Simulated scan of single mutants.
Amino acid sequence: MQVFVKDNNVDQALRVLKKKLQREGTFREMKMRRSYEKPSERRAREKAEAIRRARKAARKKAQREGLIPGPKKRVIARRAG
């Protein structure tokens, strides 16, 4: 992984690096590896994650097909003036 520093702006480069690491899942993996996870716990966690993903996909599909209402739209109040 590479991040280029432009105009000696290290803060910007650090933000970019953190965002890339977040997308890759590196932080999540480091957190998981801090302690040992039993194989049975790992299987249970992965199964729960798969169920969560499947439910989310089914919910999105139902929203697209109009079977259930979609998420509420946020109304941004503008100042008059």
Rank of each mutant, 00 (worst) to 15 (best):
L67D: 04
R33C: 06
P69E: 15
F27S: 01
Q22G: 02
E24C: 02
L21T: 01
F27H: 06
E24K: 00
Q63K: 09
K72F: 05
K60H: 02
R45I: 04
K19V: 00
A50D: 11
R64Q: 12
R53L: 13
A44Y: 07
P69G: 03
K60G: 00
A58R: 13
T26M: 03
L21P: 00
E37M: 09
Y36Q: 12
R33Y: 11
R64M: 15
G66H: 08
K47P: 00
R45N: 03
R42A: 13
F27M: 01
Q63T: 01
E29H: 11
A48E: 14
R59T: 10
K38E: 14
A58E: 15
E41W: 01
R55C: 14
L67G: 05
K31A: 09
R55Q: 14
A57N: 07
P69T: 05
A54C: 06
R64N: 10
R53P: 03
R53A: 13
A58L: 05
M32R: 15
L21S: 00
A57D: 09
M30G: 06
R23P: 00
K38W: 04
P39K: 15
Q63I: 13
K19G: 00
M32K: 15
L21C: 13
M30W: 09
E24Y: 06
Q63F: 07
R23T: 01
A44S: 11
R59Y: 07
M30P: 08
P39C: 10
T26V: 14
Y36H: 11
S40D: 10
K31V: 06
R45A: 07
R43H: 12
R64V: 04
R53G: 01
P71W: 00
G70E: 05
E29L: 09
S40H: 05
I51N: 11
P39E: 04
M30L: 15
E41V: 02
